[in-house]
Simulated scan of single mutants.
Amino acid sequence: MLIDLSGRTALVTGSTQGIGAAIAAGLAAAGARVAVNGRSVASVEKAVGRLGPAAGAFLAAPGDITTDEGARSVFEAVPQVDILVNNLGVFGAAPALEIDDAEWRRYFDTNVLTAVRMIRHYLPGMKERSWGRIQNIASDSAVVIPAEMIHYGMSKTALLAVTRGFAKEAAGTGVTVNSVIAGPTHTGGVEEFVRELVGGDLPWDEAQREFMRVHRPQSLLQRLIEPEEIAHMVVYLASPFASATTGGALRVDGGYVDSILP
């Protein structure tokens, strides 16, 4: 399948590293012009420099989109997009009864409200042009709430609802809105998370296996997913080939969620 996104502009939030950077690289390799977003100018410039060798073009769109001021900076840098990927998110383990109100709000603001803010800004233009792709990067935790981070699971469940609702708002316009349910993925942040749970003394391969065995035994893949594997799904959904897929929650979870449908 040859996916050609030439002439399309994409914005990937939280794309200076990890899954977001892999998605940015994948979209650029398909020919899109990709805006890279992060909180600071320095982190975005560094990421653009690192991503530069890939095909396509990159532009910097720094701004902390958890704030109105930061979001305005991004909107000024990228006034119009054809493809919006809401990837920004935070996660971490915490005992359920020790999560205070401020932390619950932080997870909702970062993992849910930023996506709403971006969609609210860019969806009207997509509808006017009768073409657009919006994707929200969710998680298996939206469906299988982890006992060690229920605040994170809550936020990703809410993101599925946001996706379905905005897909209805875009009905019949040529704009699709979908969620991608990512399973346990190998990123720097996840490596730190794994070591928090299984200890920092084990070699990485052993630590990963122990994490999957004890904390994610439902995985049929039985390994962490690589960020590029998430990006492959995102690139497909951004393409004309996915024109009839909207309002969905598509799984790249290594078979972690034990159901036929999410």
Rank of each mutant, 00 (worst) to 15 (best):
E128D: 14
A167C: 02
F166A: 13
P95M: 10
T173M: 11
S219I: 10
N86H: 05
H121C: 14
T163R: 03
S243V: 10
G248M: 13
A10H: 03
T163F: 01
A10W: 06
G56V: 07
A244R: 07
A29T: 12
G254L: 01
F91M: 15
L51Y: 06
N111G: 06
R120K: 15
V143M: 02
R8M: 08
I230M: 09
A60V: 09
I134F: 02
K168Q: 13
A42G: 05
A115H: 03
S139F: 04
G172P: 08
S43P: 06
T176V: 01
R33S: 13
G153C: 04
T173G: 12
V235F: 05
R39D: 07
T114C: 07
Q208W: 04
V74W: 11
V162I: 12
G14S: 11
T163N: 05
G26C: 11
L27N: 01
V90N: 07
H121T: 14
R106S: 15
V116M: 11
A170G: 05
V48E: 01
M1C: 03
G165S: 13
E196L: 12
L250Y: 15
V74A: 11
R72V: 10
H232F: 03
T66E: 07
G63T: 07
M212V: 15
Q17V: 04
I19V: 15
L84D: 08
A25F: 00
M233F: 09
A10Y: 06
Y236G: 00
L5S: 07
R120Y: 12
S155K: 00
N136R: 00
H215G: 05
I23G: 00
E69Y: 09
Y107C: 03
E192P: 12
Q208Y: 04
S243R: 13
M149E: 10
R195V: 12
V12H: 01
Y256A: 13
V41P: 08
R133A: 05
V143C: 00
P124H: 08
S141R: 03
A244Y: 06
A21N: 02
A170R: 01
R216Y: 09
V194Q: 01
S155N: 00
R106W: 14
V78A: 02
I230L: 10
V190S: 04
V235G: 04
S15M: 01
S141P: 06
D100N: 13
M1T: 08
L2V: 13
V144C: 14
S73Y: 02
S179W: 10
T67L: 03
A77H: 13
G14L: 05
G247P: 03
L51A: 09
T246W: 01
A57N: 10
V252C: 12
L97I: 08
T187G: 09
L51H: 10
I83P: 00
A115P: 03
E196A: 11
D100R: 07
L160P: 14
R223G: 07
V235E: 08
P203I: 02
R72G: 09
L197D: 07
P217L: 10
A93K: 12
V44F: 03
A231S: 15
A242T: 05
V214I: 10
R195L: 14
T163V: 07
G174T: 04
A32S: 11
L220H: 05
R105Q: 15
N37Q: 10
G247I: 00
A242M: 05
A102E: 15
A115K: 00
